[in-house]
Nucleic acid binder design. Structure first.
Length: 917
RNA sequence: GCCGAAAUGGUGGAAUGGUAGACACGAGGGACUUAAAAUCCCUUGGGCAUAGCGCCUGUGUGGGUUCGAGUCCCACUUUCGGUACCA
């Protein structure tokens, strides 16, 4: 019988679905293993061959763990809120939910064809009320919590209120404060809070824009002006967790590079906060990591957004300073980054150096950021390149502080050398000087040691429609949480997905979007009376809201009473293996670690770190093909002849090219303008050029997994994706090589059909089999699936050469290949007479005995140059080998009378004889 | 600029400090066939031989450690990711 992959794959996929083979339940008698893929955003383009790479890799691991007896949770779902569906809705009026569900259906269809062992009963979609109920719930928990810096964990806000009851606020007790005042004070502590943050605000579009949506100060969409503006936004106090996010990295098994990326992102720096007095008696606090350079401070700089600017500026300079601040406000952060022209303005005021009493001019410049440190710096042009550029531009003095450094051309930024020009610090190393200065400022009460983090609080609101609504309404401008028992607060229907005419977010279009406190229900906006009916928050949550705790929801996806039930959480604990792209290093992987730490603090998650081991799959790049058109003609010249002509390379659809040979007829039919194309061929063929590029429609290099499955089968696709190269490495997709994997499966099929022999396996068969067991087991543990695929091919060749027809060998082979090619493995399993699925089989146990050789062949080399081979009994020891080889006649020939200095014997590998040359 | 990863045949890629190029693709040759497809066999880093079946050379560049380096150390070049005035 021929290997009919289509029939086999359909049969098993149907059976797995019907029998719910991969559904799991909490089973205390078995050890758990939790495998997780970063869930996809279902885009309209569907999956290309790059997407399933990580899913296949984790599927192999999940199946392997299952064969080893683990109770494996391997769920899948969809990150369903997102901009593309909303944009499509704006253009067509089609509700994003319809688009999203259609895309999900298409994704599911594509995924199902590849034969994953997902437990689809646990599917989650972030846009369903059953799911976002718990996103809203978590937000409310964050609102009702503050970060206790002594206990170093989140605590109920009520504890903080208790504490405040014992304190006085400008002579008033807590209870004497107005509701508004209390709310404002607590807002500074809540983990989810309303804060004033700088955003790119586009008044015309009525929305906040991301940095890459703004070019040259105008919006990409529409070209409307964008300004930097402080806006009231929901924020998450991620920064409170900065140190724990840093410390947690030490406890998890992630690659060093991704840990490094997160460390840089968190950006811990130890320094000092120092207070400077101005000439007119005001105070100015700065942050520095180079306290040792205090004697080289020749000016101070404030960020334009700093509140101090207004206070410190003298009346003569006010007009100029204000115009500078207004100017910077028009520029986006991105513009300020790209255009690094030095700019700034003098405030007219001076600060006093607390160390030597010198007067230092205070400037305002946009190279100082308001969001970091205190928004003010002491400038040391000799030892900071930015200060140096500023000093040169404004002709300010530059005082070198390191012996022998040259600052005539550029600053000396390195933290090394011996300090000079610094009074009591002279002669110390930089390190010692930093330490000494810190002591000094503490003694004199000038400042204190301070740790700063780059990590900012996350802005948590968006002016969009397609996202989780905030379960919040406003009573006299004070936010109120919708009662927990009323969750989820459903996303309302709107007739337009754009901002309203008055510039409100899209939810402003909803008619029913007011909260009736009395009946605890959503009601018509027209009923708002300020007594019992109030407006509901119009913002929605950002994309990362729904993706920050989905791994917990998978543990208990149908629980209507909790995000995750205690039993389910105790059983599944955390994700053992997480697979996804490294592009999420500073987004999702930070947010969900933060989110999980919070849930850990409030006792919802039993593990502080959600993802124990992380594997970052590489990107699959596209391999584009080109044809070469001779300029101003419709004639195309083959790759190697193109130098003789003046040609333009044109992308050609990779699906009409095979092994770089163009299918000329298909090409003519591809586009009407090519119907009459002429060709200059080489050897009767048209050879295309190629390049590695991003896989995208515009490059015509997108390869679709359905097409591959149709042509070669899912098992071939799975094997080939793994065979392409290491999972973690980026590599180009080249459909050409897939034949090799398909041929292997055909040969394996033919081999399996002949495996009917019930006798004991021979020594050679066992050796070949156990070599494979060892290799595949090792490889799966280390995620080097590409060499496993090779090992299968080698093993099959060996067994074919042995003319093996042994059923027991075949049985083992079927189990070993099951993680990689599950459909064909199931078919083998059935052919071998089993009536259960192969998922219930046992992973073969390695017996090292079978791997032993009768004799060992060893290479003999002289001074590192290999010369000949010798054979020894398998149990020969080093001494015997050394004696035998030295007594050998060939050795004598190569030594040619020269004395032997040393003999190095590497057991089982080689012998190196070192002699005089 | 800073941080990270990498560089091996025509291509994708193998090699616990121990015979570099496993495995696969492509290419070339052969068998089978009226023919093609499919399948099978041989060759395939480069150079010189091939009557001597062996020799020389070779893992981005230059040094070093070692009996022995693709692998370890130092310096450099290039490529790809991430990040960007973080004081």
């Amino acid at each position: 019988m021929k290997y009919n992959f289509k029939e086999i794959e359909q049969k098993w996929q149907r059976r797995w679905a019907d029998q719910k083979t991969y559904n799991v339940t909490e089973d205390a008698s078995r050890k758990k293993y939790y495998v997780l893929n970063m869930f996809p955003y279902p885009s309209g383009a569907g999956l290309h061959v790059g997407h399933p790479l990580g899913y296949i890799a984790s599927d192999i691991y999940a199946r392997y763990k299952r064969l080893q007896g683990f109770n494996v949770l391997n769920p899948m779902g969809y990150d369903a809120y997102g901009l593309p569906a909303e944009q499509y809705a704006i253009q067509t009026g089609q509700h994003p939910e319809i688009t999203t569900n259609a895309n999900i259906a298409r994704y599911r269809e594509q995924l199902d064809k590849i034969g994953f062992c997902f437990d689809w009963d646990r599917e989650v979609r972030t846009c369903t009320p059953q799911y976002y109920h718990w996103t809203q719930w978590a937000f409310q928990q964050m609102y009702n919590s503050y970060y206790d810096t002594e206990l170093n964990k989140a605590q109920p806000i009520s504890k903080l209120v208790e504490k405040f009851r014992t304190q006085s606020f400008d002579g008033k007790s807590w209870d004497e404060l107005s509701e508004k005042q209390q709310s404002d004070i607590l807002m500074d502590y809540r983990i989810a809070f309303l804060g004033e943050t700088m955003v790119n605000w586009c008044p015309k579009l009525g929305t906040v824009l991301a940095n890459d949506e703004v070019v040259d100060g105008v919006s990409v969409r529409g070209g409307y002006p964008v300004v930097q503006q402080k806006m009231r936004q929901w924020c998450l106090r991620v920064s409170a967790y900065a140190q724990r996010l840093l410390d947690g990295l030490e406890t998890i098994d992630w690659s060093d590079s991704i840990k490094e990326t997160q460390k840089n992102w968190i950006g811990r720096s130890e320094g000092a906060e120092m207070e400077f007095k101005t000439k007119d008696g005001q105070s100015l606090t700065i942050f520095t990591t180079r306290a040792d350079t205090i004697f080289g401070v020749t000016f101070m700089v404030l960020a334009p957004e700093s509140e101090l600017v207004g206070k410190i500026t003298t009346s003569e300079r006010r007009a100029e300073v204000e115009s500078y601040v207004a100017e910077t406000r028009k520029r986006t952060e991105r513009e300020r980054m790209i255009d690094k022209k030095v700019s700034g303005v003098f405030t007219g005021n001076y600060a006093i150096n607390p160390f030597n009493g010198k007067e230092i001019p205070i400037y305002v410049s946009d190279y100082v950021l308001s969001g970091y440190g205190t928004g003010a710096i002491m400038a040391v042009p000799a030892h900071d390149s930015r200060d140096y550029a500023f000093a040169k531009h404004f002709n300010l003095p530059i005082i070198p502080l390191i012996e022998g450094c040259d600052v005539s051309e550029e600053s000396f930024d390195a933290k090394e050398g011996t300090v000079c020009n610094s009074e009591f610090l002279n002669g110390l190393s930089v390190k010692a000087a930093i330490a000494r200065t810190k002591e000094y400022i503490a003694e004199k009460g000038i400042g204190r040691v301070k740790v700063n983090y780059k990590l900012r609080d996350a802005i948590f609101s968006r002016q969009r429609y397609w996202g989780e609504p905030f379960p919040v309404y406003y009573k006299n401008g004070i936010p109120q949480m919708i009662p927990e028992e009323c969750l989820p607060l459903l996303l309302p229907e709107v007739d337009k997905f754009l901002p309203t005419e008055t510039g409100e977010p899209p939810l402003g279009n909803a008619e029913r979007w007011a909260w009736d406190e009395a009946s605890k229900a959503v009601v018509e906006c027209s009923l708002i009376d300020g007594k019992t009916v109030f407006p509901i928050e119009l913002y929605t949550m950002p994309g990362f809201a729904g993706s920050s705790a989905y791994y917990l929801r998978y543990m208990d996806p149908h629980n209507d009473n909790a995000l995750v039930g205690e039993d389910a959480d105790k059983y599944w604990q955390d994700v053992d293996l997480y697979v996804g792209g490294s592009e999420h290093a500073t987004g999702h992987l930070i947010y969900s670690r933060f989110w999980n730490k919070f849930l850990y603090d409030i006792g919802v998650s039993c593990k502080e770190e959600p993802f124990r081991k992380l594997i970052n799959q590489g990107m699959i790049q596209g391999r584009s093909n080109f044809v070469y058109r001779i300029k101003d003609t419709n004639t195309f010249v083959s790759l190697n002849l193109r130098k003789e002509y003046d040609t333009t390379p044109i992308h050609v659809d990779v699906n009409i090219v095979q092994n770089d040979v163009l299918d000329i007829e298909a090409f003519k039919a591809w586009r009407p303008e090519y119907a009459s194309a002429q060709f200059i061929l080489e050897g009767g063929k048209y050879i295309c050029g190629w390049a590695i590029e991003k896989m995208s429609k515009s490059m015509f290099n997108v390869v679709n997994p359905d097409m591959i499955v149709e042509k070669f089968g899912a098992d071939t696709l799975r094997m080939y994706e793994m065979f392409l190269g290491p999972v973690e490495q980026s590599k180009p997709w080249d459909t050409n090589g897939i034949d090799g994997c398909h041929r292997f499966l055909v040969r394996l099929w033919n081999y399996a059909e002949k495996a009917v022999d019930d006798r004991e396996p021979s020594k050679e068969e066992l050796k070949s089999l156990h070599k494979l067991i060892k290799k595949v087991t090792d490889d799966i543990e280390h995620f080097s699936y590409n060499t496993s695929v090779a090992a299968f091919m080698i093993c099959l060749n060996e067994l074919t050469a042995l003319k093996s027809t042994n059923r027991r060998v075949m049985e083992n082979l079927a189990v070993l290949i099951a993680p990689f090619a599950p459909h064909i493995a199931e078919e083998f399993w059935e052919m071998l007479g089993h009536d259960t699925t192969i998922c219930d089989a046992q992973w073969p146990v390695l017996n090292e005995e079978f791997l032993k050789e009768d004799s060992i062949k060893m290479m003999v080399s002289f001074n590192g140059k290999t010369r000949f081979q010798m054979e020894f009994p398998a149990d020969a020891d080093k001494d015997t080998i050394e004696k035998t080889v030295l007594a050998d006649t060939q050795t004598e020939k190569y030594l040619d009378g020269k004395p032997v200095m040393k003999v190095i014997v590497v057991p089982g590998r080689m012998i190196n004889i070192v002699h005089q040359k």
